[in-house]
Simulated assay, not measured.
Amino acid sequence: MKTLVLSLLTVAGLGFAASAQTNKPVTFGVKAGIAFPSMTVSSGSASVNFDSKTSFYVGGTVDFAVSDIISIQPGLTFINKGTKLNDNSISFEEEEFGTDEEATLNFKYLELPVNVVANFKLGSGKLFVGAGPYFAYALSANGKIGSVKEDIKFGENESEFKRSDFGLNFLAGYQLNNGFNIHAGYGLGLSSILDQDVSEDITFKNKVFSVGVGFSF
C-alpha cells in the first residue's frame, strides 16, 4: 500500500518538475457530479455483476503541463461507491434477512488519482482524454436493507472488508476557454476489497461510471 501511494506521489512530483521546466502554468480545478457505482463478485472463472446505485462525488485537481498537449493531473476526490444487491438475502449480526426492500452496500472513499491527460484544441476550447492509477481509502461503510442498517467495522477480526482499494481510471471531456468543463469517467478496481482472511477464493471489486462538471482556474 505504501509503495503504491509513494509511486503516485512521485508521478505527481515529476509532473510538477516538468511544468516548471517548460514554464507552463499549474492549473487548479474543482469537480462534482453523479456516480453510478457497482461491484463484480468473482470466484474462480465465475463472476456476477451486481446492479449499480446512484451516488455522487466531489473533488479537486491540480494540472501540471508537460507540453502543449500532455499534462499530469493528480487529484483528491470524495466518492460514495458500493452496489445494489441482486439477491436481497443478507446476514446482519448473524440474522438472515430475506426481503423485497432495496438492499445496498455503501462505501465512502477518499480517492487519490494520478492521470496522464492529452489535450487537443477544438473550437472554443479543448477536448481532453486521460487515464491513470488511483488509490482509495474507505472512510466508512455500511450494509442496508430497507430501514435496517449495519455499519461495517474495518480492522476488526469479524470484518469482511478492507479499507484500501486501487485500480485504473479513465476520463474524457470538453473544456471551454473560460475553464468550465463537462466530463465523464470510469473507474475499474483491480484489487479485491474483501479481506483475504475471510475468503481467498472470492473477490469483490469496485466499478464506477461517473458524469459531472468542473471548473479550472
Rank of each mutant, 00 (worst) to 15 (best):
D87Y: 09
V48S: 11
A131C: 02
S147Y: 05
K121N: 07
K84D: 01
A118M: 14
I79N: 11
D51G: 03
N86G: 13
N119D: 06
A103G: 12
F92L: 15
V66G: 01
A141I: 06
T83W: 01
T99A: 12
A141W: 02
K144Q: 15
L112K: 03
L127K: 03
V58K: 10
V116D: 00
F135M: 06
T77G: 06
K84I: 00
K108Y: 13
E102P: 00
V148M: 14
S52A: 12
A136W: 04
G75C: 08
G146M: 04
G60P: 01
A136P: 11
G82D: 01
S71P: 04
S140G: 08
F56T: 06
G60I: 09
E150M: 10
A141Y: 06
E94F: 09
A138S: 10
V58S: 06
I152C: 03
V148S: 13
L110F: 15
Y57M: 15
F97A: 05
V117S: 05
E101T: 05
L85V: 04
G123K: 12
N142H: 14
S89H: 07
Y134L: 08
V116I: 14
F56A: 11
V148G: 05
N49V: 04
I90C: 00
D87C: 02
P74Q: 10
P113T: 01
F92I: 14
P74E: 14
G60L: 04
S91K: 07
K53R: 09
G130N: 07
K121Q: 09
V129R: 08
V148L: 15
G59S: 00
V117E: 03
K53C: 01
T83K: 11
I90N: 04
E150D: 15
F128M: 00
